[in-house]
Design a protein around this nucleic acid. Structure first.
Lengths: 138, 138
DNA sequence: GTGTAAATGAGAAAAGTTTTCATTTATATT
DNA sequence: AATATAAATGAAAACTTTTCTCATTTACAC
């Protein structure tokens, strides 16, 4: 019932929005750039412009349907929002992304913000490295 | 004795390099974008091209004289390297940057990388929020 | 002083993303 | 079901940040 999801967050039900949502839900990559989504759309014969993909993803972000990761000064990748806060491990070799949750880190961050007098709005934590698979295959 | 600093890291002593170093050392902002440095140079009547500023900052980074922070998918800022590893708090209102060190977080990150089989190369942690000053003046 | 490799400046190019504006579409209203 | 209208879309241009190209200049070893 994807149409309902869109209406629920106050977005008109349009083909581009339905198709972008479909890609995000059915792709085997959990993390996709706008370009990735655009190419996946082309593969399913949906001629949706890249600008529209960006617009839709940005709206989805605003609506809380997806979250945006800003990777290392470069491009952004998007993931379907699943309600859990988590941080990311990025493989610098294969660009794979893994997720993790660590309550100790979460709590330390809140403590640091408080100690510095910051009203924390969000945080971003990326651990860069070489994933197990890439270490083995080399 | 800045010329020595440059020779020590194998960089020829040139006016642009000396001046960029001078800006970084004397500016009241510890964190500066390439654009900031470029403008500061113009203010001191040094007509050094922006491309050169980028090149010099990148070389300084390679030489370990400065480190580069990649802020939130956008532009990079540079800070003089002081030998201490630290992470950053960013004020979303005034764009101010504060630094902090937390051994617990450092250690947890290493543990997570290990647990996930990652060979960690680096990490980036930013806490976003509203700094004390901005909370008060509003 | 001179030669040579390295550095610089200016502008073009690149990458990722957003904006513009004319056209099309979804949906609230008749 | 037809229509009005506000919103969404496509295509191209614009924008932002950074890097590259290449002709000219400079640092420094000899």
């Amino acid at each position: 019932m994807e149409s309902q999801d869109l209406r629920k967050v106050g977005l008109k039900v349009t083909l581009p929005r339905l198709k972008v949502l479909e890609i995000l839900e059915t792709s085997d990559q959990r993390h996709m750039s706008a370009e990735d989504v655009y190419k996946a759309l082309l593969e399913m014969e949906e001629e949706i412009g890249l600008a529209t993909v960006y617009r839709v993803l940005t709206q989805f972000e605003g609506a809380g349907l997806v979250s945006r990761l800003s990777i290392d000064g470069g491009h952004a990748v998007f993931e379907l929002e699943d309600g859990t806060h988590h941080d990311h491990l990025l493989c610098v070799r294969c660009n794979g992304i893994e997720e993790f949750v660590d309550e100790v880190i979460e709590q330390r961050q809140r403590a640091i913000a408080k100690q510095k007098g910051f009203e924390m709005t969000e945080h971003s934590l990326y651990i860069y490295g070489i994933c197990r698979k890439c270490q083995e295959s080399q």
